[in-house]
Design a protein around this nucleic acid. Structure first.
Lengths: 151, 151
DNA sequence: GTCCATGCAAATGATTTGCAGTATC
DNA sequence: GATACTGCAAATCATTTGCATGGAC
């Protein structure tokens, strides 16, 4: 899952958008690093290896496009950089966003999947009438390697 | 809780920091709107009513200071602005951060408190060895008033 | 009086935008 | 061949910083 080149091309076509090498490269770069969380600058640097003429503005414009197509997600780890990762919707189309464990010492980011929040979402609908469609969870702490806190 | 002027003054003194009107005003402004989530610019505009000579840079510097003192929290609702709110630690000093419900239609932000995540945190320690110290949860959806989704 | 804090203006840095050239359809 | 997309450079906008003045202790 995650990235199907033909599917992406078909999607672009169906929207009347052009298939360009740059668009393929940006999505491929994000698909190639499902565990890393790349900044726009990192995506740009990665692509420049294969395609030195690409411009940073194009990377930003493509990211915008991919966000609108719901192919990628934006993550903000509050380290001053916005990051992006390939999206993962469930077969039924509902979001199955995974969450992030952020190490306060080394900055490493681990991902985990958990649907524990469904219980919480139900509770919220009952008490506030707010309909929850999506959620984002960030957990801050210390990874196994960094262990002892140094706050 | 939330804001005690005398306590704040004592804290500044104990750190060798000076008590200035600007510092008091920034913290008072945040304490006065516990439910709103103000941007630096909004805090600045609010204070200018009482104290027109205050500079935006001072607001930013004071926010930085208050974050370091753990008196306020930073929230990022991904609307392009970073927001701040008065902190609320529990008596035992542990964090009791509340979470945010963000309406995709009107942009309203509701807060809620819930410790449901403690269960999840335990699970994470067991499976990954990651020690969770703090967490942040954002739930996106539609508030009671906006009801029907318009995605 | 000392030194920290402030205000202003200039600097920074991520992201965006205008525009002319280029590639896709 | 028309038009959407790209690359470049300039513009933008939140936030930070340098520096001289002002205020707290």
């Amino acid at each position: 899952m995650a990235f199907d080149r033909e599917e992406f091309i078909a999607l672009l076509k169906s929207k009347g958008l052009k298939i360009t090498n740059q668009r393929l490269l940006v999505l491929e770069t994000l698909a190639a690093c499902p565990d890393r969380h790349l900044t726009a600058e990192e995506i740009y640097e990665n692509i420049k290896a294969d395609c030195p003429e690409i411009g940073l503005a194009t990377v930003y414009r493509t990211i915008q496009l991919l966000l609108e197509l719901h192919l990628i997600d934006r993550i903000n780890l509050d380290d001053g950089f916005v990051r992006y990762e390939i999206g993962n919707e469930r077969e039924d189309g509902s979001k199955h966003r995974h969450h992030h464990l952020i190490c306060r010492k080394c900055g490493k980011v681990l991902s985990f999947q958990d649907d524990l929040l469904e219980e919480l979402e139900e509770k919220i609908v009952k008490t506030t009438g707010f309909q929850v469609m999506d959620h984002e969870v960030k957990l801050y702490g210390y990874c196994k390697e960094c262990g002892g806190r140094t706050d």
